[in-house]
Each structure stands twice: as C-alpha cells, then as structure tokens.
Design a protein around this nucleic acid. Structure first.
Lengths: 252, 252
DNA sequence: CGGTACATTGAGAGATATCAACAGGCGTGG
DNA sequence: CCACGCCTGTTGATATCTCTCAATGTACCG
C-alpha cells in the first residue's frame, strides 16, 4: 500500500513562495481578494473596499513566526488571507492550550483590553492583511453593516469556543480526536477542500495542546483509530476511511 | 466556631419575591434599571431607552426553570436583570458541560444560526428583560454605538471562553477550583459584592460540570483546600481565608 | 420526626500522563 | 550518493490523577 503525502491546497498556504517584506503596500486590491467573501470584508461595497485598500498592509510570516503575543499591546488587527495559524495561551509554567486554529478569512486580534489575550503564530507560511487598530476602529465606527458582520463572526467564534469547551471538559481522548478531525474537515470544506482526506498542517503536539491531551495520547489514539479501521494515517494528514463511525464518535 | 450562611446580595436574586407572570408590561422603565450600566443598554440615550421600554418584557423564572434550550428556535434575546443562570450544553448521553454562569447585565441568546447553541436555566430566582429577536434586530440595526457595545460584550465573552478553555484543558483539579473561586469573586466584585466571602448560589454538581470534574472531586478539592488553610467552607459559599495562596493556585 | 436532596468521604478502577526508548524522514555535509 | 544528526512521531512500562461505585452525613421541609 503506497501512501501519498496529503498536499494541502492553497488555503493552507503550502505553496512556498514566501516574501519577507514587512508591510509592503497592497499590490493586490481588496476587490480581487480570494478570501473576501469569507472575511469581514464581505460586508463592504466597492467604495469601502477601495478605502480599505489604503488601510491594510500585506504581510507574510514564515512557519513558526509569531504574529502577535499574549500581553503585547494591541496595535493591529489581522485578516488572515492564506495559511493556518495557531491561537494559544500559555500558563506561567509553560503549559500551553491552543484555543483554536485560524484559517483564511478569519479576523484576528480583536480585544477589549489594550493587550492581546492570546498569542498567534504561523503554522506554515502565512499571509495576512494588517490593519492599524486605531485606523480600523475609525473605519468601522460608523458602518452598521460592517459592525453587524463583525458581530456575526464574533458570535460564530463564541459558539465554536463553547463547543471546544464541551470537548475539553466532557469527552474522552478518542472522542476528542474524532471530533477534531470532523471539525477540521468541515472548516476546510467551507474553504473548498471537500474530501475525506483531511490534511493536517499542524503537528501532533499542536493537536495535543488543542485537545487538552499529551502528544503520546494523541499518537496512540490515532493509531487505535487506524487499527479499528476508522481512519488511515497518511503523511501530512488523515484519511477518514469510515466516515460514519468517525462522525458517530465525534457526536457522542 | 459558628458558621453563618453566606447571604447573596440582590444581584444573585436571593430576595424571594417571585412573580409567575409571562411577560408583564414593564412596570419599571429602562431608565431606572439597576443593571443598565452593566448591560448593553449603557450605550443608549434617553430617547432610545424609552423606545426599548416598549420592546422588552419583564419575565421571571423560578429556580431550575429553563429560559431557553439548545436546539430551540431563537425567538428571543434576554437581558439578565437579577439572579444567576447556568449556560450549558448536553451530550447525547447526558454528560453536561456548563460553559458559563450568567450574572445581571449579561445579554443572552445571541446566535448566528436560527437555533440556540446552548441551554440556559435559572439557578435561583431570575428576572430578565425579554426581547423578540426580530424587533430587537430592527432596533439595533442602525445604531452603531449599540452595535459597538454588543461587540464589546461579545469580545469579553469570547475572552472569558478562552480562559475557560485553558482551565479545562491544562489545569489540575485544585487549580480549577481555585481559579473558579477567584474568577467568580471577581465577577461579583464588579457587581458590588467585594469581600473575601464568596457566595456560591450554584450547587456542587454545577461547579463540577463547569470545571470538567465530578461532584466528588470538587467536594474533595474543597475539603483539601480547607484542610490546607486556604479557604473555609461555609453553607452557601466559601471564605477565602488565605487569598494570596488561592490566587497563586488560580494563576498557576 | 421522617423524607428528600445535596454534600462528603472512602476504596478501588480506569483513563491519561509521565518517563524512556526507538523509528522514520529530511536536510546537511562529506 | 551515502552518513550523520535532528526533529517528529510512535510505542512501551509505569505512575498518577480523577472517576466510579458505595456508604455515610447533613440540611431543609413538610
């Protein structure tokens, strides 16, 4: 049996053209943005998009680079255009909890307080649109449709966080892993990658820190699911061999 | 040593005058609302408050009564005026995870989808302001200041959810309990009850379901913290005897 | 005073963590 | 082209925390 590495598509940012520029002017207009329909920008009309062009700066990050960190002053907001990001919190003794993975279209960095409550860094190569907090605040201030859009995204995020809460508090390792695979697959599906082959651009440690497990338990659980015929472990991802049973576990 | 029952103040809704009315007209105007400064209503001017008077209905719930349930159509939003509510999710097999406790000023029921993602019921007697979803949507639609206020509350809730996520995924039972006590105390403090005596209107099972533990573990952990001199267990609540050490545990 | 619901305590089981060893892929450099 | 080292992932043996099951205790209420 020959296993092919799961190639993540464009949304996961696996095309390796990386620029190191720190805030190049937007060579590409918002009007042509690939993730516009997914992001907060979906709420904007042509004029507003042109205005936004001047506010945002395209920035690229290499794998493992930090975009912003817990405790830092909130000076910018970010619209993720390409790639995957880890959002996490650290305890003083180094324990880490990943609160979520960000995908293209996600809007990051919102905070009531002056400082970021979480850290965010790039899983693979990442491209974002960066906005200065103050100018973005001015831009959004009097645009009810944009405010409603932000609202909508926040409610969705909150709902996701609540689901995650149930997973962490009340599910067994096997259910956590299955639930993660299904959830991740569904999110990718909304971006256009819809198969039962789920690319996992993040490593096992990331999965563990997301699910509140150790890396060993995640590894063992994957292996068990494979032995039981629910999944197949491929380099770079997972194939959901028996989708029904994985979904059953995830719902349990 | 004589232990006095911890009396929760007005915010916890322990004054037992309960009306069973199903949507009485607002006998009391929004302008005089005790929780206005805490709620989304803080963003409204006098005219808007009068308008809101006509949209909201005062409704009371008895202990354990359900305000809305997971899966139900989202027909109303709720502004909690008095009392404490449990917000939770159930797994098909009955496991329960409490995602949060609501206090006066909290705005409940927001959902992107047509159905509620969580259930909410009254811990003790509860008083809410109920708004029809559609009329509230119409009211808020073109009011940027109100939309910004809602965003602010959502961001705060999201941040709380993320903290909860870390607690569930990466903390030991002792840290969870300490963290819960500190967090609950801080929230009550913002409502005006600021002592080291923390009333706990919810039962042990609720605490357990909030912290992702069993009732026995919560009980044992309380007992251990008391034996170690960090807290004193009182009927109806907890006294933080050694605040420093409890906070150290909570931060850990 | 008995009943019921809630809380505490104990003993043992079980799930996951920890510690440790090993395997495989990949890039570097000889 | 192969050898080496590094990083990531897997597997095994044991420890530990929390759960489960069961009994007991306690407050509240009719």
């Amino acid at each position: 049996m020959h296993k092919v590495r799961l190639e993540a598509g464009i949304v996961l940012g696996c095309r390796m053209k990386i620029s190191l520029a720190e805030g190049e002017p937007n060579e590409q207009a918002c009007a042509d943005c690939a993730v516009r329909s997914l992001s907060i920008c979906a709420a904007l009309d042509r004029t507003e998009l042109r205005e936004l062009d001047h506010l945002g700066r395209h920035v690229h990050f290499r794998p493992r680079e930090t975009v912003f960190a817990q405790g830092e002053l909130t000076e910018s907001f970010y619209n993720l255009r390409e790639g995957v990001m880890r959002l996490y919190k650290l305890l003083p003794d180094g324990r880490r909890q990943i609160v979520g993975f960000a995908l293209p279209g996600d809007f990051l960095g919102m905070a009531t307080s002056a400082r970021h409550g979480i850290s965010a860094d790039a899983v693979g190569p990442v491209a974002v649109c960066r906005f200065s907090r103050s100018s973005f605040a001015r831009f959004i201030e009097d645009k009810p449709h944009l405010l409603r859009r932000v609202n909508e995204l926040l409610v969705r995020e909150l709902s996701q966080a609540q689901d995650h809460t149930v997973l962490l508090g009340r599910r067994l390792a096997e259910e956590k892993v299955a639930s993660f695979l299904i959830g991740w697959r569904d999110r990718l599906a909304r971006l256009g990658e819809a198969t039962n082959r789920v690319p996992l651009p993040m490593g096992r440690q990331d999965v563990a820190d997301f699910l509140g497990l150790t890396i060993e338990t995640v590894s063992r659980t994957f292996t068990k699911l494979e032995r039981d015929g629910l999944i197949e472990i491929l380099p770079g991802g997972i194939c959901l061999t028996d989708l029904e049973r994985v979904e059953a576990l995830a719902a349990a």
